[in-house]
Each structure stands twice: as structure tokens, then as C-alpha cells.
């Protein structure tokens, strides 16, 4: 019996339907029941994908990412504000020798500036996440794409500056829209780059 006459039935099945050395069919062609197995081997591998987990790309939704985004905004604000406050405190107490009042002044400025910046950034991130979840929900667009990013950025700016008069609101909305647009461009930088590259070669 020649192996070339009975090629493997699938790429993952390394053994042919017949064992050439034993002259015994592993899979009897009539009933497709192997004499060595209690089950029908045709169930085992049918040439399809062999993954248990779904292999399609899964991206995290906005609600899932919201807490991480808010938390990193708070932490970033605390670090930035703390460093800034420490710098300010060092310059303000430059003539003081290292003593308790200087230490307390430095600690106060670091902690208070850090907390203030952290709170501001955290509230902005909270607004943005809430608007993002709202706009990408089924109430509005039902998909998470650039429209909800842009609209959420603009709404965040408008709401954050909503007590600063119409001019302030417009400025806040503009800043929010600009940052959201920058973020969209950064996320799609491959597409932008390729289109720019095409333009440059032409």
C-alpha cells in the first residue's frame, strides 16, 4: 500500500487514512468508525479553525476604559501639580534655611497644588468619559468612532467652561474640539501618513 495514494485528509492530520506498515485501516471507510476509538474520528478534526477563543479583534469599550482614563488623569494631574508646587515652593522659600517652616511650606504647596491640578484633570476626564459613553451608546451613534470622540471633546469643553460666559464656553469648546481632533489624527496616523506620503510623491 503506497502512502502517496492515500494523502492526509487535512493539514493537521499527519496520519493517512490507512497505516501502510500495519495494513489495517485506521478509519474504516464504510462506517467511518475507527476500530481503536470509541468515537467517530471525523468529529475530531474537520479542517476548520482549532481555536477555542474567538479570534476576532476585540477592543475595549468606553465604559470599560473610563475608570482607567479618569484614574490616570488624576494621577498625572497630581504628579504635574505636585512638581509644579514643589518648584514654586522652592523658589518662594529660597532665602529660608532648611527648617520646619520651610518644610511645612514646601509640603503644603506640593500637596495643595497637586490636589488642585488632580481634581481639575479628573473632572475633565470624568466629563469626557461620561460624554463618550453617552455618545457611543445606542441613544446616539451606537458605534464608537471619531464622531463620538469629537463630540465628547467639544461637549466636555463647553460643560467645563459653562459658568464662564458664552465667550469662555466657546473657547472651552474650541479647545476640547481641537484636542479631540488631534487625538483622532494621532489614532489614525497610519492612514494620514500614507495619504500625506502619496501627496508628497506626486
Amino acid at each position: 500500500m503506497d502512502r502517496s495514494q492515500t494523502p492526509p485528509s487535512s493539514p493537521f492530520n499527519f496520519y493517512g487514512a490507512q497505516d501502510p506498515s500495519m495494513n489495517v485501516p485506521l478509519t474504516s471507510s464504510g462506517s467511518s468508525f475507527s476500530p481503536y476509538l470509541n468515537i467517530d474520528p471525523s468529529y475530531l478534526n474537520q479542517g476548520g479553525s482549532e481555536f477555542i477563543f474567538p479570534t476576532e479583534k476585540r477592543t475595549r469599550g468606553r465604559f470599560e476604559l473610563a475608570f482607567s482614563q479618569i484614574g490616570s488623569s488624576v494621577a498625572a494631574g497630581a504628579i504635574y501639580g505636585g512638581v509644579n508646587g514643589l518648584r514654586l515652593g522652592l523658589s518662594e522659600t529660597a532665602e529660608l534655611a532648611w527648617s520646619k517652616p520651610k518644610y511645612v511650606q514646601l509640603l503644603n504647596l506640593t500637596l495643595k497644588r497637586g490636589a488642585a491640578t488632580a481634581n481639575t484633570l479628573g473632572v475633565i476626564a470624568l466629563f469626557y468619559s461620561a460624554f463618550g459613553v453617552l455618545y457611543s451608546s445606542s441613544l446616539f451613534f451606537d458605534v464608537d468612532d471619531e464622531r463620538s470622540t469629537l463630540l465628547a471633546g467639544t461637549s466636555t469643553g463647553l460643560l467645563f467652561k459653562s459658568t464662564a460666559g458664552l465667550k469662555g464656553m466657546a473657547r472651552g469648546g474650541g479647545v476640547g474640539f481641537g484636542l479631540a481632533a488631534l487625538w483622532c489624527v494621532w489614532q489614525n496616523r497610519d492612514r494620514v501618513k500614507s495619504s500625506l506620503g502619496v501627496n508628497q510623491t506626486l
Binding site: F67, S68, Q69, I70, G71, S73, V74, G122
Partner: peptide
Amino acid sequence: MEEYAREPCPYRIVDDCGGAFTMGAI
């Protein structure tokens, strides 16, 4: 709304910080 599972440990800090901020602010 997606299923919300907790992050593994070092990233959990940021996540918990954000969750606590949200809770406190609201």
C-alpha cells in the same frame, strides 16, 4: 455596556483611583 472585570494588579491602582474619583465626584 460591556462586562466589567477587574484589572490585574499593578493596573488596578489606576483603575481603582479612577473609580473612586468618579464615585466621590458624583
